[in-house]
Every structure is written in structure tokens, then in C-alpha cells.
């Protein structure tokens, strides 16, 4: 197994287990959460958080799973995973000086970069599907149930969002030689975006609006992806991928 594949495999496994651990804890906590929802609402320090708890109460277990698994788990850990998988792809090689031996192999630049993109993309997306697939089984422990199909659609929506973040980070990696700077830059971006999300007058400017409880509630209710949002995420990913190829070709040779 090639080193980059091994990194992706171990990274994906770690990302899956973190996600699954969060999911198990959240689902097993649901009965207690449901019983104490009024007290939790009173404890919430911000109106936006109180609003979220209202959404969870109204939506029941479906909204709770959306909030815990997709909005909290996938958005926070997933965004981090997307950055970790992408930031060193080219910038890391340039920093350690191994870009030359990478390029010296008898493969086209496009193939080298495409392979790396695909491996990282799979490492980002597959754990989302895998952990989402365990939700109905975990819900059985608390006598609840959810259908597989809307969960699959939600996982697809979440994966597309993470792939857009991954591809944007990937493009930055193709233009830079400082992977840690990319990582911290993206982390600051996520913090800023999440802060904006919590401010009611600015929340519509946050990218996390695309993957909040409302967004997944619509998917669950309609049993379909929003075509415009899906198209936008796919287009962003494709544009970032092509930008990566362009940036990579410009720096090498």
C-alpha cells in the first residue's frame, strides 16, 4: 500500500471512529435530553441556541440526529478532517522537499494530482456514509427508528459540503509550501463562519447555513436533495479541483 493511501486509510478510520463515538454518545443521551429539554433551553446562553433547542423539540428524534450527527459532528470534525486530508497534499511535499521525487515518476501531473484528490475525497466522504449507516441500528437501542434513504441523502448532502471545503483546502495546498499555515487559516475561517452563524442578523452569510438542522430537516421531509444547493456544492468542488490542477501545473515545472 502506498504511503499516501495508508495515511488516508488511517485518517479515515480515525475520523470514522471519532464520528461514531460522538454519534453513540448523542443517541444514547436522547432519552435524557428529551426529558430535560426545558431545563436545557433555560440554560442556553444565546437566543440562537434556544432556537436550535426549539427546533430539536419540534422535530423530535429526526431533528436531534440531524443536529448531533450532521450539524455538530460532521461539520466540526468533518471540516477538520477535510483540512487535514488536503492541506499537505502538495504544500507538505514542497515543504519537505519531496515534490521532485513525486514529479519524477512516469505519470502526468494531472494523474498524480487527481489520484491524490480522489484518495483524500474518499477518506473525507466514506466515514460520513459509514457512520450515518449505523444510525438506524443505534436508534434501536433507544426504541427509535429512522429510514435509511433520507439518511443516505443527508449523508450525500453533508459529504458534498465537506468535499467543497476539502477541495478549497486542496487548491490552497497546490499554491503554497506551508501546510500548517493553510491548516490554521482554514481553522480561523471555520471559526469565523460559525461565529457568523450564531449571530441572527448575519447567519444567512455563513456557509454552515448549508448544513444546519433546517437544511437536513428539509431533506428528511422531502426525501430529496435541494438541486440548487447540490449543484452549487458540486460546482464549487469542480471549480476548486480545476483551480488546483491549474495551480499545480504552474508551479511544476
Amino acid at each position: 500500500m502506498l504511503r499516501e493511501h495508508r495515511f488516508a486509510l488511517w485518517g479515515a478510520l480515525a475520523w470514522f471512529f471519532v464520528l461514531e463515538a460522538l454519534l453513540v454518545g448523542a443517541i444514547l443521551f436522547w432519552p435524557s435530553f428529551e426529558d430535560n429539554i426545558d431545563a436545557l433551553r433555560d440554560m442556553a446562553p444565546m437566543e440562537s441556541l434556544k432556537g436550535m433547542i426549539d427546533q430539536l423539540e419540534a422535530g423530535g428524534i429526526v431533528a436531534y440526529v440531524n443536529g448531533q450527527h450532521f450539524f455538530k459532528g460532521c461539520n466540526s470534525v468533518g471540516a477538520l478532517a477535510a483540512v487535514v486530508f488536503a492541506m499537505g497534499v502538495v504544500a507538505g511535499e514542497a515543504q519537505r522537499g519531496t515534490l521532485e521525487i513525486l514529479l519524477a515518476r512516469p505519470m502526468s501531473r494531472r494523474r498524480v494530482l487527481s489520484e491524490r484528490w480522489i484518495v483524500g475525497a474518499l477518506a473525507v466522504a466514506l466515514p460520513v456514509y459509514a457512520s450515518t449507516h449505523t444510525i438506524p441500528w443505534l436508534l434501536g437501542f433507544i426504541d427509535e427508528d429512522m429510514a435509511h434513504w433520507p439518511l443516505f441523502l443527508s449523508a450525500t448532502h453533508q459529504s458534498l459540503f465537506l468535499l467543497a471545503l476539502y477541495s478549497a483546502t486542496f487548491a490552497l495546498s497546490c499554491a503554497s509550501s506551508r501546510p500548517m499555515a493553510i491548516g490554521f487559516g482554514m481553522l480561523l475561517f471555520f471559526l469565523a463562519e460559525f461565529s457568523i452563524y450564531l449571530v441572527q442578523t448575519l447567519t444567512h452569510w455563513s456557509v454552515f447555513r448549508l448544513t444546519d438542522i433546517d437544511a437536513f430537516a428539509r431533506i428528511m421531509a422531502q426525501h430529496a436533495l435541494d438541486p440548487w444547493i447540490t449543484l452549487g456544492l458540486v460546482a464549487t468542488t469542480a471549480a476548486c479541483f480545476e483551480l488546483s490542477q491549474h495551480l499545480y501545473a504552474r508551479r511544476t515545472p
Binding site: 504511503r3 519537505r96 522537499g97 519531496t98 521532485e100 521525487i101 519524477a104 515518476r105 512516469p106 505519470m107 502526468s108 501531473r109 494531472r110 501545473a249 511544476t252 515545472p253
Partner: peptide
């Protein structure tokens, strides 16, 4: 032409500057 892959398929190269993946066993 292009990114030079046609040449890289017909030639082999050893770089002057040594930068390798230290974590890998030599065979790998």
C-alpha cells in the same frame, strides 16, 4: 511537450537534492 510525461516514461532520473520519506522502510 506539456508536462513532459512522454519523456519521463522513456527516461529515469535521480535528483541531486536528497529528500525522501523517512518514515518508509527502504524497500517500500
Amino acid at each position: 511537450v506539456g508536462d513532459g510525461v512522454a519523456i519521463r516514461r522513456r527516461a529515469a532520473y535521480a535528483p541531486g537534492e536528497i529528500a525522501l520519506y523517512g518514515e518508509l522502510p527502504a524497500r517500500e
